[in-house]
Design a protein around this nucleic acid. Sequence first.
DNA 1: CTATCATTCAATTATTCGATTGAATGATGT
DNA 2: ACATCATTCAATCGAATAATTGAATGATAG
Lengths: 220, 220
Amino acid sequence: MSISPKMALLEEYALVARALSAPARLMLLEQLAQNERRVEALAEKTGLTVANCSQHLQQLRRAGLVTSRRDGKAIIYRLTDARTLTLLGVLGDVAERNLAQVEEILRGISNGEDAPEPINRNELAARLSEGSVTVLDVRPADEFADAHIPGALNMAVTELGKFLTDLDRNTEIVAYCRGPYCVYAHQAVAFLRKNGFNARRLDGGLPEWREDGRAIQATS
Amino acid sequence: MSISPKMALLEEYALVARALSAPARLMLLEQLAQNERRVEALAEKTGLTVANCSQHLQQLRRAGLVTSRRDGKAIIYRLTDARTLTLLGVLGDVAERNLAQVEEILRGISNGEDAPEPINRNELAARLSEGSVTVLDVRPADEFADAHIPGALNMAVTELGKFLTDLDRNTEIVAYCRGPYCVYAHQAVAFLRKNGFNARRLDGGLPEWREDGRAIQATS
DNA sequence: CTATCATTCAATTATTCGATTGAATGATGT
DNA sequence: ACATCATTCAATCGAATAATTGAATGATAG
């Protein structure tokens, strides 16, 4: 209690940053950006044990990044507000632009091919309304069911090969996934281009699209 | 090398966050937001030993947040780009709005009085051009000399009491300091208001003002 | 009121991080 | 070419953190 207010403040800011400093917690936040979820579901999605998952979630809560409520027997966690999403986005932005390692990893996913620039969300919205584009949601089916861009097709990236014949080669394809930390869209675009499709990524994933205030769709 | 690209990417993002997770490094970044500096100067400003300071700086560099160059015998560090500043701002934003602790600390600085809303930079620029406001830079003199808002008076917050008689009681005072992590402006406003002045904080400090593309001034 | 079950707590271990010290580096400027 | 000096490296210690296990909690549903 006798430390200066200046140091006390810095400790608080550092606490928020520390909450973001473990890959496991970034995974959790990525999941929560898709949709609110219960602890058990998060544990399953991320491959963590339930107890470990719970501890990470509490660190995120202490940092003010997520909040929780009870629903029946389950505790449902969700992102506190849009600021959490903004913070994740800016963090990713810094990492992507300033760390050579990140570029290298992404190039590895594309097998060394240069991927085209991603399309931004405004442009996609315009193209969607004129029907000149195929939108591909490459997340797992359950996340697609929770919420997706209206009119999108769902083909989990792991099973993309099976559905290639369903895709129109003459229409540009825009693939999206969970957001800036997710590699699914990168992988999908690389795979599609190798197979002769004209494919690009969307800049941002479903959370960012929703945060823009655009309509989303759920499978009832 | 055999880990998945997904985990590799998350590790990189976590690395950036971890760089922000120590109060000492946040202090360093706050200093570097004022101006580029050599290691020795940073050590002195932050109270760290030179060796310790150097190590923290290297962590920041690994995270891509700062870069360095040589100038004569000295190594000069600076923020990599404006994204670092953005990241710091958003981090502070999340902490300020979601952590009750932070509010409490800030209230402590204001002695429980409610501080008025800060003025935003656009508004200050307008008020400045019509001369209807006194702008007060409450940072130490050396930082003021490096760069300050044109027309600002410099009164380090620690010595504000000595200069009260120099201030016009009939003009609104706007105080600013290093930025969102700095408590000087909070302290100055609390002190001035207790002494009957009409004072407010500026939203953001000198780095944010400069980043807006506005003119700054240096003491030659 | 009680049994159930999702979640959290507590305790342990292995790992990582931060500060400190003193020595080493290496580009500069003479 | 050499001496200088700001910076970095290396090694150490103490503290903090992450994952794991099993037990405890506590609100709900019957």
